[in-house]
Design a protein around this nucleic acid. Structure first.
Lengths: 161, 161
DNA sequence: GATGAAATAAATTTGTG
DNA sequence: CACAAATTTATTTCATC
Protein backbone atom coordinates (compact mmCIF):
# COMPACT_ATOMS: atom_id res chain seq x y z
CA UNK A 1 0.00 0.00 0.00
CA UNK A 2 1.27 3.40 -1.06
CA UNK A 3 0.50 6.87 0.18
CA UNK A 4 -0.78 9.03 -2.66
CA UNK A 5 -0.79 12.78 -2.26
CA UNK A 6 -3.63 14.75 -3.87
CA UNK A 7 -1.63 15.39 -7.06
CA UNK A 8 -0.81 11.69 -7.54
CA UNK A 9 -4.46 10.92 -6.92
CA UNK A 10 -5.47 13.44 -9.57
CA UNK A 11 -2.99 11.96 -12.05
CA UNK A 12 -4.32 8.46 -11.42
CA UNK A 13 -7.85 9.70 -11.89
CA UNK A 14 -7.05 11.44 -15.17
CA UNK A 15 -5.16 8.46 -16.58
CA UNK A 16 -7.95 6.13 -15.55
CA UNK A 17 -10.21 8.26 -17.67
CA UNK A 18 -7.77 8.70 -20.58
CA UNK A 19 -4.52 6.78 -20.47
CA UNK A 20 -3.32 8.49 -23.66
CA UNK A 21 -3.53 12.00 -22.29
CA UNK A 22 -0.41 13.87 -23.35
CA UNK A 23 1.99 14.54 -20.51
CA UNK A 24 1.94 18.30 -20.97
CA UNK A 25 -1.87 18.39 -20.96
CA UNK A 26 -1.98 16.16 -17.90
CA UNK A 27 0.55 18.42 -16.18
CA UNK A 28 -1.59 21.50 -16.84
CA UNK A 29 -4.68 19.70 -15.64
CA UNK A 30 -3.18 18.72 -12.28
CA UNK A 31 -1.35 22.02 -11.92
CA UNK A 32 2.34 21.08 -12.09
CA UNK A 33 5.19 21.41 -14.59
CA UNK A 34 5.48 18.79 -17.38
CA UNK A 35 8.83 17.56 -16.12
CA UNK A 36 7.47 17.09 -12.62
CA UNK A 37 4.42 15.38 -13.98
CA UNK A 38 6.53 13.04 -16.06
CA UNK A 39 8.45 11.94 -12.99
CA UNK A 40 5.28 11.35 -11.02
CA UNK A 41 3.70 9.29 -13.78
CA UNK A 42 6.81 7.17 -14.06
CA UNK A 43 6.84 6.71 -10.30
CA UNK A 44 3.20 5.61 -10.31
CA UNK A 45 4.02 2.93 -12.88
CA UNK A 46 7.20 1.88 -11.04
CA UNK A 47 5.44 1.61 -7.71
CA UNK A 48 2.78 -0.54 -9.33
CA UNK A 49 -0.05 1.86 -8.61
CA UNK A 50 -0.74 1.94 -12.34
CA UNK A 51 -0.34 -1.55 -13.73
CA UNK A 52 -0.80 -0.73 -17.36
CA UNK A 53 -2.89 1.08 -19.94
CA UNK A 54 -5.38 -0.69 -22.13
CA UNK A 55 -7.48 0.32 -25.11
CA UNK A 56 -11.19 -0.26 -24.58
CA UNK A 57 -12.38 -2.07 -27.67
CA UNK A 58 -15.97 -2.07 -28.88
CA UNK A 59 -16.49 -5.82 -29.09
CA UNK A 60 -19.53 -5.54 -31.34
CA UNK A 61 -17.52 -3.66 -33.95
CA UNK A 62 -14.95 -6.44 -34.12
CA UNK A 63 -17.56 -9.11 -34.64
CA UNK A 64 -18.42 -10.14 -31.09
CA UNK A 65 -21.75 -8.48 -30.34
CA UNK A 66 -22.84 -10.96 -27.68
CA UNK A 67 -21.41 -10.74 -24.17
CA UNK A 68 -22.08 -13.11 -21.30
CA UNK A 69 -21.03 -13.80 -17.75
CA UNK A 70 -20.50 -17.47 -16.98
CA UNK A 71 -20.40 -18.83 -13.43
CA UNK A 72 -18.19 -21.88 -13.19
CA UNK A 73 -17.75 -24.47 -10.49
CA UNK A 74 -14.98 -27.03 -10.82
CA UNK A 75 -15.18 -30.65 -9.72
CA UNK A 76 -13.48 -31.31 -6.37
CA UNK A 77 -10.55 -33.15 -7.99
CA UNK A 78 -9.75 -30.09 -10.14
CA UNK A 79 -9.73 -27.50 -7.37
CA UNK A 80 -6.00 -27.72 -7.03
CA UNK A 81 -5.57 -26.64 -10.63
CA UNK A 82 -8.03 -23.78 -10.30
CA UNK A 83 -5.39 -21.17 -10.95
CA UNK A 84 -4.00 -22.95 -14.00
CA UNK A 85 -7.49 -23.47 -15.34
CA UNK A 86 -8.36 -19.77 -15.05
CA UNK A 87 -5.01 -18.79 -16.50
CA UNK A 88 -5.71 -20.95 -19.53
CA UNK A 89 -9.08 -19.26 -19.90
CA UNK A 90 -7.46 -15.85 -20.27
CA UNK A 91 -5.69 -16.99 -23.41
CA UNK A 92 -8.94 -17.77 -25.24
CA UNK A 93 -9.88 -14.96 -27.62
CA UNK A 94 -13.47 -14.78 -26.35
CA UNK A 95 -12.44 -14.16 -22.75
CA UNK A 96 -12.43 -10.55 -21.52
CA UNK A 97 -12.18 -11.08 -17.76
CA UNK A 98 -11.87 -13.87 -15.25
CA UNK A 99 -12.88 -13.29 -11.63
CA UNK A 100 -11.85 -15.82 -8.98
CA UNK A 101 -14.56 -16.00 -6.36
CA UNK A 102 -14.89 -17.03 -2.77
CA UNK A 103 -18.15 -18.85 -2.26
CA UNK A 104 -20.23 -21.44 -3.99
CA UNK A 105 -18.89 -20.78 -7.48
CA UNK A 106 -15.19 -20.87 -8.28
CA UNK A 107 -15.08 -18.12 -10.87
CA UNK A 108 -16.88 -15.88 -13.28
CA UNK A 109 -15.83 -15.68 -16.89
CA UNK A 110 -16.76 -12.62 -18.89
CA UNK A 111 -16.85 -13.43 -22.60
CA UNK A 112 -17.72 -11.81 -25.92
CA UNK A 113 -18.81 -13.99 -28.82
CA UNK A 114 -20.08 -13.62 -32.37
CA UNK A 115 -23.53 -14.95 -31.49
CA UNK A 116 -25.50 -17.36 -29.40
CA UNK A 117 -24.27 -20.37 -31.31
CA UNK A 118 -20.66 -19.37 -30.69
CA UNK A 119 -21.44 -18.78 -27.04
CA UNK A 120 -22.95 -22.24 -26.76
CA UNK A 121 -19.88 -23.72 -28.42
CA UNK A 122 -17.57 -21.82 -26.11
CA UNK A 123 -19.30 -23.14 -23.02
CA UNK A 124 -19.43 -26.66 -24.40
CA UNK A 125 -15.87 -26.80 -25.70
CA UNK A 126 -14.08 -25.08 -22.86
CA UNK A 127 -16.33 -25.50 -19.84
CA UNK A 128 -19.31 -27.78 -19.47
CA UNK A 129 -17.91 -30.33 -21.90
CA UNK A 130 -14.63 -30.74 -20.04
CA UNK A 131 -14.00 -33.15 -17.20
CA UNK A 132 -12.80 -30.50 -14.74
CA UNK A 133 -16.03 -28.51 -14.74
CA UNK A 134 -18.87 -29.48 -12.44
CA UNK A 135 -21.36 -26.79 -13.37
CA UNK A 136 -21.83 -23.61 -15.39
CA UNK A 137 -24.48 -20.94 -15.44
CA UNK A 138 -24.56 -18.43 -18.28
CA UNK A 139 -26.17 -14.99 -18.10
CA UNK A 140 -26.29 -12.71 -21.11
CA UNK A 141 -24.99 -9.18 -20.61
CA UNK A 142 -27.15 -6.40 -22.02
CA UNK A 143 -24.74 -3.63 -21.24
CA UNK A 144 -21.46 -3.05 -19.49
CA UNK A 145 -20.72 0.24 -17.74
CA UNK A 146 -17.35 1.24 -16.38
CA UNK A 147 -17.18 2.89 -12.97
CA UNK A 148 -16.04 6.43 -13.53
CA UNK A 149 -13.18 7.61 -11.34
CA UNK A 150 -14.59 9.94 -8.68
CA UNK A 151 -14.67 13.60 -9.60
CA UNK A 152 -12.85 15.77 -7.14
CA UNK A 153 -13.84 19.36 -6.51
CA UNK A 154 -10.67 21.01 -7.79
CA UNK A 155 -9.55 19.77 -11.20
CA UNK A 156 -11.40 21.02 -14.25
CA UNK A 157 -11.53 19.64 -17.78
CA UNK A 158 -9.66 21.41 -20.54
CA UNK A 159 -11.20 21.29 -24.01
CA UNK A 160 -9.62 18.78 -26.38
CA UNK A 161 -7.66 20.11 -29.36
CA UNK B 1 -19.81 -3.63 -37.40
CA UNK B 2 -16.59 -2.75 -39.19
CA UNK B 3 -14.29 -4.80 -41.36
CA UNK B 4 -10.79 -4.83 -39.89
CA UNK B 5 -7.89 -5.87 -42.06
CA UNK B 6 -5.04 -7.81 -40.43
CA UNK B 7 -3.03 -4.65 -39.77
CA UNK B 8 -5.92 -2.89 -38.04
CA UNK B 9 -6.48 -6.05 -36.03
CA UNK B 10 -2.83 -6.06 -35.01
CA UNK B 11 -3.00 -2.40 -33.99
CA UNK B 12 -6.09 -3.06 -31.89
CA UNK B 13 -4.37 -6.00 -30.25
CA UNK B 14 -1.25 -4.01 -29.42
CA UNK B 15 -3.19 -1.07 -28.01
CA UNK B 16 -5.34 -3.40 -25.96
CA UNK B 17 -2.12 -4.62 -24.42
CA UNK B 18 -0.50 -1.19 -24.07
CA UNK B 19 -2.55 1.86 -24.94
CA UNK B 20 0.42 4.16 -24.38
CA UNK B 21 2.64 2.52 -26.96
CA UNK B 22 4.38 5.24 -28.98
CA UNK B 23 3.13 5.53 -32.52
CA UNK B 24 6.52 4.87 -34.10
CA UNK B 25 7.03 1.74 -32.01
CA UNK B 26 3.52 0.55 -32.82
CA UNK B 27 4.17 1.19 -36.50
CA UNK B 28 7.33 -0.90 -36.43
CA UNK B 29 5.53 -3.67 -34.59
CA UNK B 30 2.73 -3.96 -37.14
CA UNK B 31 5.06 -3.41 -40.06
CA UNK B 32 3.94 -0.08 -41.55
CA UNK B 33 5.26 3.49 -41.65
CA UNK B 34 4.56 5.77 -38.67
CA UNK B 35 2.52 8.17 -40.75
CA UNK B 36 0.34 5.34 -42.03
CA UNK B 37 -0.01 3.93 -38.57
CA UNK B 38 -1.05 7.27 -37.18
CA UNK B 39 -3.86 7.52 -39.71
CA UNK B 40 -5.06 4.01 -38.94
CA UNK B 41 -5.08 4.60 -35.21
CA UNK B 42 -7.08 7.79 -35.65
CA UNK B 43 -9.50 5.95 -37.90
CA UNK B 44 -9.97 3.20 -35.32
CA UNK B 45 -10.89 5.80 -32.72
CA UNK B 46 -13.14 7.70 -35.13
CA UNK B 47 -14.98 4.57 -36.22
CA UNK B 48 -15.58 3.70 -32.58
CA UNK B 49 -13.62 0.45 -32.71
CA UNK B 50 -11.45 1.80 -29.91
CA UNK B 51 -13.65 3.61 -27.42
CA UNK B 52 -10.94 4.94 -25.17
CA UNK B 53 -7.84 4.09 -23.21
CA UNK B 54 -7.79 3.55 -19.48
CA UNK B 55 -5.08 3.12 -16.89
CA UNK B 56 -5.38 -0.11 -14.94
CA UNK B 57 -5.04 0.85 -11.30
CA UNK B 58 -3.95 -1.50 -8.56
CA UNK B 59 -6.87 -1.03 -6.19
CA UNK B 60 -5.01 -2.45 -3.21
CA UNK B 61 -2.29 0.15 -3.54
CA UNK B 62 -4.81 2.97 -3.37
CA UNK B 63 -6.39 1.64 -0.23
CA UNK B 64 -9.07 -0.70 -1.58
CA UNK B 65 -7.68 -4.20 -1.13
CA UNK B 66 -11.04 -5.96 -1.02
CA UNK B 67 -12.95 -6.62 -4.22
CA UNK B 68 -16.38 -8.16 -4.56
CA UNK B 69 -19.02 -8.99 -7.12
CA UNK B 70 -22.55 -8.19 -6.01
CA UNK B 71 -25.60 -9.67 -7.73
CA UNK B 72 -28.55 -7.32 -7.50
CA UNK B 73 -32.23 -7.81 -8.19
CA UNK B 74 -34.54 -4.82 -8.14
CA UNK B 75 -38.13 -4.82 -6.91
CA UNK B 76 -40.69 -4.99 -9.72
CA UNK B 77 -41.72 -1.34 -9.28
CA UNK B 78 -38.12 -0.19 -9.85
CA UNK B 79 -37.48 -2.15 -13.03
CA UNK B 80 -38.32 0.84 -15.18
CA UNK B 81 -35.52 2.82 -13.58
CA UNK B 82 -33.01 0.02 -13.92
CA UNK B 83 -30.83 2.01 -16.28
CA UNK B 84 -30.85 5.11 -14.09
CA UNK B 85 -30.10 2.99 -11.04
CA UNK B 86 -27.08 1.38 -12.67
CA UNK B 87 -25.90 4.70 -14.03
CA UNK B 88 -25.98 6.14 -10.52
CA UNK B 89 -23.93 3.16 -9.34
CA UNK B 90 -21.11 4.01 -11.74
CA UNK B 91 -20.58 7.34 -10.01
CA UNK B 92 -19.82 5.75 -6.64
CA UNK B 93 -16.07 5.60 -6.01
CA UNK B 94 -16.15 1.92 -5.00
CA UNK B 95 -17.72 0.80 -8.28
CA UNK B 96 -15.39 -0.58 -10.94
CA UNK B 97 -17.89 -2.20 -13.31
CA UNK B 98 -21.61 -2.65 -13.71
CA UNK B 99 -22.95 -5.49 -15.85
CA UNK B 100 -26.62 -5.48 -16.87
CA UNK B 101 -27.83 -9.04 -17.03
CA UNK B 102 -30.59 -10.95 -18.72
CA UNK B 103 -31.96 -13.56 -16.33
CA UNK B 104 -32.91 -13.86 -12.71
CA UNK B 105 -30.63 -11.08 -11.48
CA UNK B 106 -30.76 -7.57 -12.91
CA UNK B 107 -27.09 -6.72 -12.67
CA UNK B 108 -23.70 -7.42 -11.25
CA UNK B 109 -21.71 -4.72 -9.51
CA UNK B 110 -17.96 -5.10 -9.29
CA UNK B 111 -16.62 -3.08 -6.36
CA UNK B 112 -13.36 -2.44 -4.52
CA UNK B 113 -13.45 -1.38 -0.88
CA UNK B 114 -11.05 -0.68 1.97
CA UNK B 115 -12.20 -3.72 3.95
CA UNK B 116 -15.07 -5.95 4.88
CA UNK B 117 -16.69 -3.32 7.04
CA UNK B 118 -16.68 -0.83 4.16
CA UNK B 119 -18.07 -3.50 1.85
CA UNK B 120 -20.88 -4.20 4.28
CA UNK B 121 -21.62 -0.49 4.47
CA UNK B 122 -21.59 -0.14 0.71
CA UNK B 123 -24.14 -2.91 0.29
CA UNK B 124 -26.29 -1.58 3.09
CA UNK B 125 -26.18 2.09 2.09
CA UNK B 126 -26.51 1.75 -1.65
CA UNK B 127 -28.21 -1.59 -2.22
CA UNK B 128 -29.91 -3.80 0.34
CA UNK B 129 -30.88 -0.86 2.50
CA UNK B 130 -32.69 1.01 -0.29
CA UNK B 131 -36.29 0.57 -1.28
CA UNK B 132 -35.57 -0.26 -4.95
CA UNK B 133 -33.50 -3.36 -4.22
CA UNK B 134 -35.18 -6.71 -3.70
CA UNK B 135 -32.11 -8.85 -3.12
CA UNK B 136 -28.34 -8.86 -3.18
CA UNK B 137 -25.72 -11.57 -3.10
CA UNK B 138 -22.11 -10.70 -2.47
CA UNK B 139 -19.14 -12.83 -3.50
CA UNK B 140 -15.60 -11.85 -2.59
CA UNK B 141 -13.11 -11.75 -5.46
CA UNK B 142 -9.76 -13.41 -4.79
CA UNK B 143 -8.19 -12.38 -8.05
CA UNK B 144 -9.07 -10.67 -11.29
CA UNK B 145 -7.40 -11.65 -14.55
CA UNK B 146 -7.73 -9.75 -17.79
CA UNK B 147 -8.23 -11.72 -20.98
CA UNK B 148 -5.11 -11.23 -23.06
CA UNK B 149 -5.69 -10.28 -26.68
CA UNK B 150 -4.95 -13.32 -28.83
CA UNK B 151 -1.41 -13.62 -30.12
CA UNK B 152 -1.24 -13.87 -33.88
CA UNK B 153 1.51 -15.73 -35.64
CA UNK B 154 2.98 -12.84 -37.59
CA UNK B 155 3.77 -9.80 -35.47
CA UNK B 156 6.89 -9.88 -33.32
CA UNK B 157 7.87 -7.87 -30.25
CA UNK B 158 10.44 -5.14 -30.51
CA UNK B 159 12.62 -4.58 -27.45
CA UNK B 160 11.62 -1.63 -25.27
CA UNK B 161 13.92 1.39 -25.21
C1' DG C 1 -3.93 3.92 -49.20
C1' DA C 2 1.01 4.05 -48.23
C1' DT C 3 5.13 6.50 -47.91
C1' DG C 4 9.52 9.58 -46.68
C1' DA C 5 10.94 13.96 -45.52
C1' DA C 6 10.04 18.36 -43.35
C1' DA C 7 7.98 20.97 -39.87
C1' DT C 8 5.87 21.05 -35.57
C1' DA C 9 5.18 19.49 -31.07
C1' DA C 10 5.99 16.67 -27.24
C1' DA C 11 8.69 13.64 -24.12
C1' DT C 12 12.62 13.22 -21.42
C1' DT C 13 17.02 14.48 -19.24
C1' DT C 14 19.79 17.48 -16.88
C1' DG C 15 21.26 20.94 -13.80
C1' DT C 16 19.79 24.18 -10.16
C1' DG C 17 17.23 26.09 -6.33
C1' DC D 1 10.73 17.57 -4.82
C1' DA D 2 9.76 21.08 -8.25
C1' DC D 3 11.24 23.54 -11.93
C1' DA D 4 13.01 25.71 -16.61
C1' DA D 5 15.98 25.05 -20.19
C1' DA D 6 18.11 22.03 -23.34
C1' DT D 7 18.07 17.87 -25.81
C1' DT D 8 16.18 13.92 -27.86
C1' DT D 9 12.32 11.82 -29.74
C1' DA D 10 7.78 11.47 -31.57
C1' DT D 11 3.74 13.35 -34.02
C1' DT D 12 1.72 15.35 -37.84
C1' DT D 13 1.38 17.33 -42.37
C1' DC D 14 2.07 17.05 -47.08
C1' DA D 15 3.70 16.13 -51.71
C1' DT D 16 4.45 12.00 -54.18
C1' DC D 17 3.94 7.39 -55.67
Amino acid sequence: MVELDPIDAAIVRELQDDARLANNVLAARVGIAPSTCHGRVRSLFERGVIRGAHAEVDQASIGRPLQAMISVRLRPHARGELSAFAQAMTTLPEVLNVYFLAGADDFLIHVATAGSEELREFVLNHLSGTRDVAMTETSLIFEHLRGRPAEQGSARRAPQG
